[in-house]
């Protein structure tokens, strides 16, 4: 983008669209376990995810762009997570928050899905048990970067 002396703003439509899209990534209200508490904490005044335009947690998957899988996914919950992902409208992104969602974490047993990427495609993994809110903010930043660069899922994605 460049500003000309006569107060014109010249930009490619692609860039404007991607800028708008990346600045309003709305997450789905889906808290699973410990990480959900840290997911709530990013909306608090200390971390303030509103700076990234992502403070609007939507309870309906139809209105959400981003699914934050926040915590361990039990075998019983897995079909629900999958269905919620399917219900979200394209384009959509997924953050796998924490060790449990990414790999099963310390729960290597019969009850926990060993990595949410066996069910839904994951864009960003956040390590930690649970990750700090800063970690989640960085993950949202990475999602924004992916959108601006025309990565997977964006409306003007380079296929």
């Amino acid at each position: 983008m460049e500003v000309s002396p006569g107060h014109f703003l010249l930009a490619r439509l692609d860039d404007v669209a991607r800028w708008a899209q990346s600045s309003s990534v709305w997450p789905l209200t889906m808290g699973l376990a410990c990480c959900a508490i840290e997911m709530m904490t990013v909306t608090s005044s200390e971390y303030d995810i509103a700076r990234l335009g992502s403070e609007v947690f939507r309870s309906s998957p139809r209105q959400a762009d981003l699914m934050i899988v926040s915590g361990r996914v039990a075998q019983k919950m897995a079909p629900v997570v999958k269905r919620l992902y399917d219900q979200m409208a394209d384009p959509k992104w997924v953050i796998s928050m924490g060790a449990c969602a990414s790999s099963g974490g310390v729960f290597d047993n019969y009850a926990v899905v060993q990595g949410i990427d066996t069910i839904v495609p994951v864009d960003v993994y956040v390590p930690g048990c649970p990750p700090t809110p800063d970690g989640l903010l960085y993950a949202v930043n990475l999602i924004q970067q992916q959108i601006r660069e025309g990565g997977r899922g964006g409306i003007l994605a380079r296929s």
Binding site: R72, A74, V106, F107, D108, N109, Y110
Partner: peptide, 11 residues
């Protein structure tokens, strides 16, 4: 209930 059954006692 049971949507967060993690098998902690068994683990």
């Amino acid at each position: 209930i049971g949507y967060l059954h993690t098998g902690i006692e068994k683990t």
